[in-house]
Design a protein around this nucleic acid. Structure first.
Length: 449
DNA sequence: AATACGGGGTC
DNA sequence: GACCCAGTATT
C-alpha cells in the first residue's frame, strides 16, 4: 500500500503529449525573466514519490504543532480512531459542523467566519434544527457575511438531506449533488468528516502548489485547474487526508501567503521550486507564483436611497424620536443581495443632481406606497444627508442618501394594512430592530441620533 | 470561458 | 485603491 498515489505519470514520456489535440505551447505570459528554466507544460508536472512522502510527513508534523484552534475543529472527535464504532449521530453532527464551516469559509477569511459559525451552531446545533429554520431567519443570521446564496443553499440542502432520510452524504459524488457544495467543499467534507482520501483545491492550495512547482501559467485556466487537482491528489495523505488537506490550506493562509510568504518558517521550503529559482536568479521572486490575473473592471451603478422615518406621535422639537419607525423594503429574491432588507431605493441611470434624484424617489414612493412627497402631506423634513460608495466585487455602487421625516397619517392605508402577509415586501421597524440587519449598514450609520 | 455574487483584511 | 480570500452556479 506503499503507493496508492494513484498515478504513474511521474514517468510519462514527453511524446505522450502528442495524443492531446489542444493547441499548446501557445504564447503564454511569463513573469519577467525568460532565461529561467520553467516547467512549462503543466500537464507534465508531477510530484515524485519521494517528494510526496516527505511533503506529507513535514506538513503533518508542522500542522500538529502549529494548527490554529478553530471552533469547527473542536467538534471533531478525538479518540474515535478505533474504526467505525462511532455512532451515527455523532458522525452526522461532525459532518454538519464541517459543512457549515466550509460553506462559510468560501471566499471568506477564517477570522470573519469564527463569530458567525459560533452563532449559527448555537442557533441550529444539528442538521434537523437547521431544516426547520426559515429563509428569513437564515438570512438574518448571515447578514454581513456576503454571498447570501450560500445561506439559502445551506437551508435547502438541510431540508433535502433530512427529507431523503439517507443520512449525511459521505462521498464526493453524493455531496456534489447538494446545492452549494462544489468540488472543493465536497472534498473538504469527505476528507475531514469522513476520512475519504480525496484532495481539495482552494485559493491557498493553488498558491502553494504553484510555488512548489514554479508553475507560471494562468492558474484559472481549465488545464491548470485540472492539473492542480491532480497534483493535490498525489500529495494527499492516505491515513490523515482531512488533516493533510487542512494543513496544506493552513500553510497557504499563514505561511505561504500571497504577498509576503515566510519561507524561512515553511516546513516544506526545501521542496519549493519557486524558492529555489528565486535564490538562483535575482529576477525571480516566490511571489511571482502563481501568475497574477487581471480582473475585469467593475461597473458603476448609482442609486437614490431614502431613509423614511415615520412618526406616530407629535413631533418633539429638536429631539430624537425614540418611537419613530423606519420603512424597510425587501429586495427581489433573485440577484444581488437577494431577499435582504434595505431602505427604499431606486437605481438611477447615472450621476444625478438633487432634483433628478428626488424625482426618482418621488415616483418610487408614489408607486410603491401611494405616498406623494410633493404634496405637503405632513412631511416634517426632507434633506440630503450625503453620498455613499459601496464596493462589491463587480459593482461600484454610489448611493445618494436622503432623509425624510413624516407623520404616520401620510399613509394611513399602509399603516393599517395587516403585517405578516406573505406577499408583503416591506415593513416598519424601530431603531432597535434596525441594528440587526447588516448590509446597507453604511447608510444606517448615518443615524446617530 | 466568462460572469454574478459580498464583505472585509491587508499592503 | 488594488488584491484576494478554506468557491459555486449560471450564462
Amino acid at each position: 500500500m506503499d503507493d496508492i498515489i494513484g498515478n504513474t505519470q511521474n514517468t510519462v514520456a514527453p511524446s505522450d503529449q502528442s495524443k492531446k489535440k489542444r493547441p499548446r505551447r501557445v504564447v503564454r505570459p511569463k513573469p519577467k525573466s525568460t532565461q529561467v528554466e520553467k516547467s512549462d507544460d503543466i500537464e507534465d508536472i508531477n510530484f515524485t514519490k519521494d517528494e510526496t512522502v516527505e511533503i506529507r510527513a513535514s506538513l503533518l508534523k508542522w500542522y500538529d504543532e502549529n494548527q490554529r484552534d478553530l471552533p469547527w475543529r473542536r467538534i471533531s472527535s478525538k479518540g474515535e480512531d478505533e474504526e467505525d464504532n462511532e455512532d451515527t449521530e455523532e458522525s452526522e453532527k461532525r459532518a454538519y459542523a464541517v459543512w457549515v464551516s466550509e460553506v462559510m469559509l468560501q471566499q471568506t477569511r477564517v477570522q470573519t467566519v469564527i463569530d458567525y459559525f459560533n452563532k449559527w451552531m448555537t442557533k441550529w446545533p444539528t442538521l434537523s434544527h437547521l431544516a426547520q429554520a426559515s429563509l428569513e431567519e437564515v438570512n438574518e443570521m448571515w447578514a454581513g457575511l456576503g454571498y447570501y446564496r450560500r445561506a439559502r443553499f445551506l437551508l435547502e440542502g438541510a431540508k433535502m438531506i433530512v427529507e431523503e432520510g439517507g443520512g449525511f452524504p459521505k462521498a464526493v459524488p453524493a455531496l456534489r449533488k447538494v446545492k452549494g457544495i462544489g468540488e472543493y467543499t465536497a472534498g473538504a467534507i469527505a476528507s475531514i468528516a469522513f476520512k475519504e482520501v480525496v484532495p481539495v483545491v482552494d485559493g491557498n492550495v493553488v498558491r502553494v502548489i504553484a510555488r512548489l512547482k514554479a508553475v507560471s501559467t494562468n492558474p484559472k485556466e481549465a488545464v491548470a485547474v485540472k492539473n492542480t487537482w491532480k497534483l493535490a491528489g498525489q500529495l494527499v495523505d492516505l491515513c490523515r487526508p482531512g488533516d493533510f488537506n487542512q494543513a496544506l490550506m493552513e500553510l497557504g493562509a499563514t505561511v505561504c501567503t500571497p504577498s509576503s510568504p515566510s519561507c524561512n518558517e515553511c516546513p516544506i521550503s526545501t521542496k519549493c521550486r519557486a524558492l529555489l529559482l528565486s535564490r538562483c536568479h535575482d529576477s525571480v521572486q516566490v511571489t511571482d507564483y502563481p501568475m497574477k490575473i487581471v480582473k475585469a473592471k467593475q461597473r458603476s451603478d448609482f442609486a437614490a436611497v431614502t431613509v423614511v422615518e415615520v412618526l406616530e406621535g407629535p413631533r418633539m422639537k429638536d429631539e430624537a424620536h425614540p418611537n419613530s419607525k423606519f420603512i424597510l423594503v425587501k429586495r427581489a429574491d433573485k440577484g444581488l443581495l437577494a431577499g435582504l432588507w434595505e431602505f427604499p431605493s431606486v437605481l438611477l441611470d447615472g450621476e444625478a443632481d438633487s432634483v433628478t434624484r428626488r424625482d426618482a424617489i418621488d415616483h418610487y414612493l408614489k408607486s410603491a406606497f401611494d405616498l406623494d412627497p410633493t404634496k405637503s402631506c405632513d412631511i416634517i423634513s426632507r434633506e440630503d444627508v450625503g453620498e455613499y460608495v459601496h464596493v462589491f466585487t463587480h459593482i461600484r455602487l454610489k448611493m445618494y442618501v436622503e432623509w425624510m421625516v413624516l407623520h404616520v397619517k401620510c399613509f394611513k392605508k399602509l399603516w393599517n394594512k395587516k403585517q405578516g402577509e406573505d406577499d408583503i415586501n416591506w415593513k416598519f421597524v424601530d431603531q432597535q430592530t434596525l441594528s440587526c440587519m447588516g448590509l446597507t449598514s453604511g447608510v444606517r450609520k448615518k443615524e446617530k441620533t
